[in-house]
């Protein structure tokens, strides 16, 4: 029974299935739930981004009150690709704030026309061209993506100075870079073809139709007349197929199991960071935490 630590430790693997502009799907395997969940939690709450945190109003006679507008501004995602170049205000060497730890944005809109003027995220002017509202990026010039802040009527004016700071989702949800960060277990679905063959064509069709997410496929016109698994990843473990099989009196028609060491992750970005960056940052943060613990253990602090 003399196993070394390195033999006990598993080597987690990460396989990317799909990367889009705003989402990533990858498989994390050969590891434990705790690791998968840690990754998920860090992606939501601990990957830092830039967000408006302080707002100084100079003028606001719009219909919305100051706090409400400030809150809305805070929730506008800002491009945080160079987040590493900023430090937290609390760690910064400056006394109040400086360019190292914050970015100033300005909003200065007055409605002079007779029709309502929509103030949107595109009216926010940043002093740092790298930290701008996500919707103002060149890649997304689509005006539908602009985030409305307030509507002004003739004579109404809004003039303010907003200061964006670095922060994490733990502190306030606005700093969370991910809209969705979740995983599911890899399902193992085994069909008992013998049992399926016992079914009539109509029953087969009914059984395949019982799955709300269409995991199985069957076409009576197919030459093979076989029920096949189209996409096991679609399975949400609703066990509708199992229930249907039981109603036919064939509980062993299908076998469903979750593979406990293989996780399919889906991460969607708010736009502040690229989805793959969220994952990378998260891994980096976990590593740093572990190193911290290691260091402290070595020092005998733990």
């Amino acid at each position: 029974m003399s196993q070394t630590v390195s033999q006990l430790t598993r080597q987690p693997e990460l396989e990317i299935l799909e990367i889009k502009n705003d989402s990533i799907i990858f498989i994390l395997s050969n590891t434990d739930i705790s690791v998968a969940n840690a990754l998920r939690r860090v992606m939501i709450a601990e990957v830092p981004t830039m967000c408006i945190d302080l707002v100084e109003f100079e003028s606001n006679n719009s219909v919305l009150c100051d706090e409400f507008i400030a809150h809305r501004l805070g929730l506008i995602p800002l491009v945080s690709d160079n987040i590493d170049k900023f430090c937290y205000t609390r760690d910064c060497s400056c006394s109040d704030r400086c360019d190292q730890c914050s970015v100033e944005l300005r909003l200065n809109v007055k409605c002079t026309e007779n029709r309502p003027r929509d103030v949107t995220s595109s009216d926010l002017l940043s002093q740092n061209s790298a930290v701008i509202p996500v919707s103002s990026q060149v890649t997304s010039s689509n005006s539908e993506q602009e985030i409305p802040i307030v509507k002004l009527r003739r004579g109404q004016e809004i003039k303010l100075r907003a200061i964006a700071k670095k922060g994490v989702g733990k502190e306030h949800a606005k700093w969370s870079p991910s809209c969705v960060a979740t995983y599911q277990f890899q399902p193992i679905i085994v069909l008992n073809q013998n049992r399926i063959d016992e079914l009539t064509d109509q029953q087969k069709e009914e059984w395949v139709g019982s799955c709300p997410t269409k995991v199985y496929s069957y076409s009576p016109h197919q030459s093979t007349q076989q029920v096949t698994i189209e996409d096991p990843l679609r399975c949400v473990y609703c066990l509708e197929c199992k229930k249907k099989a039981e109603s036919f009196g064939k509980p062993d028609l299908v076998h469903l199991e979750q593979k406990q060491d293989k996780f399919i992750f889906t991460v969607e970005s708010s736009g502040a960071l690229k989805p793959e960056d969220i994952v990378l940052y998260a891994i980096q943060i976990i590593k740093r935490k572990l190193t911290d613990i290691q260091g402290q253990m070595a020092e005998g602090m733990l």
């Binding site: 739930i33 840690a38 998920r40 995983y183 709300p212 679609r234 949400v236 473990y237 609703c238 979750q258």
Partner: peptide, 23 residues
Amino acid sequence: QLAKAGFNRFGNEQMYSGTTGKE
């Protein structure tokens, strides 16, 4: 309507604990 959208027809869903990650 739920089943059509790929959900359990009784509104139930499999959930995971946020703290442990377990189902």
